[in-house]
C-alpha cells in the first residue's frame, strides 16, 4: 500500500494553523473569531495524530483526547459569553465592543 509522506500532513496542518491565526486577526465577528481559534486547536490535533502515527507512539493520540475535551469546554463557555454580550448589545461585532480604550 502506498503511504502518504508525513510532510503532507504537516504542511496541511501548518496551513490550517495559519488560516486560523489569520482569521483571528482579520475577522470582526466574535463567532467567526472563535471558529478560527477552534481551527487552530484542530490543526494541532492533526499534527499530534501525524506524529503519533509515524513515531509509533501513543502519547499523541492521548493528548488529542485531552485537547478535544478542553475545546468542548471552551466552546461551552465561549458561546455562553458571546450570547451574554449579544443580549446586552444586540451585536457580536468586536469593533463595537469598545467601552475600554487605552
Amino acid at each position: 500500500m502506498l503511504q502518504v509522506p508525513m510532510e503532507y500532513y504537516l504542511i496541511l496542518s501548518a496551513f490550517m494553523f495559519t488560516v486560523g491565526v489569520a482569521g483571528v486577526l482579520i475577522r470582526r465577528n466574535a463567532i467567526v473569531v472563535f471558529m478560527s481559534i477552534e481551527l487552530m486547536l484542530n490543526s494541532a490535533n492533526l499534527t499530534f495524530i501525524t506524529f503519533s502515527s509515524y513515531l509509533g507512539n501513543s502519547i499523541g493520540q492521548i493528548f488529542v483526547f485531552f485537547v478535544m475535551t478542553v475545546a468542548a469546554a471552551e466552546a461551552a463557555v465561549g458561546l455562553a459569553i458571546i450570547i451574554a454580550i449579544f443580549r446586552n448589545k444586540l451585536s457580536v461585532n468586536i469593533d463595537e465592543i469598545n467601552i475600554f480604550k487605552w
Partner: peptide, 22 residues
Amino acid sequence: SNNEASLKYFLLGSFATGFIVY
C-alpha cells in the same frame, strides 16, 4: 463592562492556548 472583559479575556486567552497546543 463584565461582558466585554470576559469576551476579550476569552478570545485572547484561547488564542494563546492555540499557540501553546501547536
